[in-house]
Design a binder for these strands. Structure first.
Lengths: 229, 229
DNA sequence: CCAAAAGTGTTGACCGTACACCCATGA
DNA sequence: TCATGGGTGTACGGTCAACACTTTTGG
């Protein structure tokens, strides 16, 4: 090893995951009751240290799948937090990731086992360290990305209705949309496939089911379409 | 220290800086000839290890100001690169930052001393490790941010002309704009202050000088203005 | 039969884009 | 006087935002 490397100081590096979910009640955040000191018993994001033989992305994926049991998760690096005193226990640099989980693929049983709980995005409790800052940044990122890319689909089941999709976007952007304009915009993207089936869970009339056409979406992205609503 | 921290493995953490500059010839990148093995003699980004007693942001700023002699630099964290084998010399996790430098405040003499050289953004050589990937991501970020925030100003002297500003935006977005539309858009933002002086370096007629009004700009950002051209 | 959610079109305002000529001046 | 870059206005088309009524059907 070149001498320059031996002069570098070594650090503890963690990953912390902001886990978003979505259901009838709106956008949710999965939080965990901390099991160790300091700050034992307080709510926190899911975290873990990075091993020597895994990449940072792999570490985030490992931590997530250990807890959720899911392997196909939308996961994206958010930001790295490196203040010296950010963690009261030791100097730890934390690389934050955010994940989007399809709630219908996630088992609620896991929560009791891990002391976890879903919180509504507009009712997030005080979290340890700088975790509230991470959550705010993740929400801002989700909003920004949703304007140009349909990542919101990652939070919905494979088949969904347009009113359901609208509720998702209203939850992400925290504002209401006109349903005629919303439908018009979504349809104009030509990336939805309509089914004959209806979902009657939320209304007597029933709403047609749609799915998302990934091939058409990729073409759309290349052309530089703007998903803004 | 809680037991959990002592189980974490420690890593070498570096910062790497993508340094942008701008002059008559266009958008530039400051690159350095590597002085150590492996890859000695190849071009690379400016980098350094993070000390135990400094935050990650502070480390990036320290590395930058050691080289450029500048202290007021626009600096923003870009992304963290954590593949196990990304650095051929050792397992190093690198936190990339990008910097915008006003070329008139930067002394060209510094370059010889540090084996550094400015490269045109559309003529970047092969760099060590994953540094080309970092550069591409930084340019994409600069483009995206420039659509909603006038960070391009960080690359210009305090007083500049509108044709100069247009050249900067054309360099960032790598495409030409209609000068009437550009001027109209920029003026409509109402964040420029016009001076009576003219700059005659680039034309016989001379172009009026402007400066950027940060107070008006901040108000604009709160209202959510779109800087897109 | 009625409550509740799904579905449907039109219009005006604004913004982005395309486009051509005159002005000032140093050489 | 002329070559060079600086400066100016208008018209079209597309996208966003506002707005109200009909349809379906389970209870």
């Amino acid at each position: 090893m070149s001498e320059i490397y031996s002069h570098g100081k070594k650090h503890l590096i963690a990953v912390d995951c902001i886990i978003f979910g979505f259901d009838d009640e709106g956008l949710k955040l999965l939080l965990f009751k901390r099991k160790v000191n300091p700050e034992k018993g307080k709510w926190s994001l899911l975290g873990g240290f990075i091993n020597l033989n895994e990449s940072v992305d792999e570490a985030a994926l490992r931590v997530l799948s250990e807890i959720t049991g899911l392997s196909k998760i939308y996961l994206e690096q958010l930001y790295t937090y490196g203040e010296v005193e950010r963690d009261a226990g030791a100097r730890v640099i934390s690389i934050a990731y955010y994940a989007l989980i399809k709630s219908n693929e996630y088992s609620e049983k896991l929560n009791k086992h891990h002391n976890a709980k879903w919180f509504s995005i507009d009712n997030v409790p005080d979290l340890i360290f700088d975790h509230n800052i991470m959550v705010n940044k993740a929400l801002a990122r989700l909003q920004r990305k949703s304007k140009t890319q349909p990542i919101g689909f990652e939070l919905l089941p494979a088949k969904f209705t347009i009113p359901q999709l609208q509720k998702l976007y209203e939850a992400i952007f925290q504002k209401k949309f006109d349903k005629r304009n919303f439908r018009k915009k979504i349809i104009s993207l030509k990336t939805l496939k309509k089914y004959e089936e209806k979902d009657k869970l939320n209304s007597k009339k029933g709403a047609f089911l749609y799915s998302f056409d990934k091939v058409k979406y990729k073409k759309m992205l290349e052309k530089g379409y703007n998903f803004e609503i």
